[in-house]
Design a protein around this nucleic acid. Sequence first.
DNA 1: TATTGTTATACTCTATAACTATA
DNA 2: TATAGTTATAGAGTATAACAATA
Lengths: 164, 164
Amino acid sequence: MTAATPLDAEELAAYLALKEVSSLLEHAVEQQLRTDGGLSGPQFQILARLSDAPAGHLRMTDLADSLVYSRSGLTYQAAQLEKQGLIMRTPAEDDERSIVVTLTPAGRELLDRVMPGHVEVVQRLLLTSLSRRDIAAITDIMGRVRDRMRTAPPRSAQRRPAGG
Amino acid sequence: MTAATPLDAEELAAYLALKEVSSLLEHAVEQQLRTDGGLSGPQFQILARLSDAPAGHLRMTDLADSLVYSRSGLTYQAAQLEKQGLIMRTPAEDDERSIVVTLTPAGRELLDRVMPGHVEVVQRLLLTSLSRRDIAAITDIMGRVRDRMRTAPPRSAQRRPAGG
DNA sequence: TATTGTTATACTCTATAACTATA
DNA sequence: TATAGTTATAGAGTATAACAATA
């Protein structure tokens, strides 16, 4: 067994600081979304993703993949959003199995209404503390980490049946 | 109303990259904790916090504060952990209202057992991609952000009753 | 009165498995 | 057979409000 070298002080500090900042930021953002638009974090993410999509719509599977969670979880959220008239689900034309999710005008409106507050929170909590160089550094570093994470085997090939 | 300048491209990129990395990392860590020790993220945090505490114990309120969530939420988690024999709750000596939470030997054992895998995940997903300079940069930047976040008024004084 | 902690309750979120329908 | 999506279900987590006890 590889003895999993414990993190040194700097590594630990970096990890913990990153974790705490993300956690506090996420918390604050979720509260703002809830207050300003009655949206949960996942719901906002779905709407935002749709609004960024080329034609304002995506298939369920694509949404689920890009948001990391299970299809049943997405079905649940989609049902909530549809109930509120924020999205529409329609059968895909080319593949009868697929469902295309579209942002409704009401959905776009809500997004527009919620966005300024969202931006304000991010500005106030995160960006205020950052110089232009800091921002570039984060983009660079986190971008690299993200690319590696996506490349690396998600789960498998971690545990070997026999040590060797 | 301050027109909440929309984030420019760089700011947005930094924010999104940060968010995605944290999210993926958290996800992976939680799965590892669950698999290796049957612990949820919050439960692990509680145990870890206790293990870092000076005498291996903290009051409920202190725990709740340092972990951000509500006291009733902590009561729930503490009950789960106590059921499993990982912590102990005992009345405080100096203040009859307070409860002191202590890590049991079994709790420490579990923490020891889970930690190597935890470290491994952080190494593999995060630290592998980082140079020494990156680590220093993250520590510096995130440390600064965290300090500001803590200093800033948590919730109040955000919305003014009248604009001007 | 304020603080510490618990309880009752209600709700959201998520995942797994079983199922339907199309490719 | 594999893929897309839904449903049923079950469990975990969290918060709010009401409560009891101590400061």
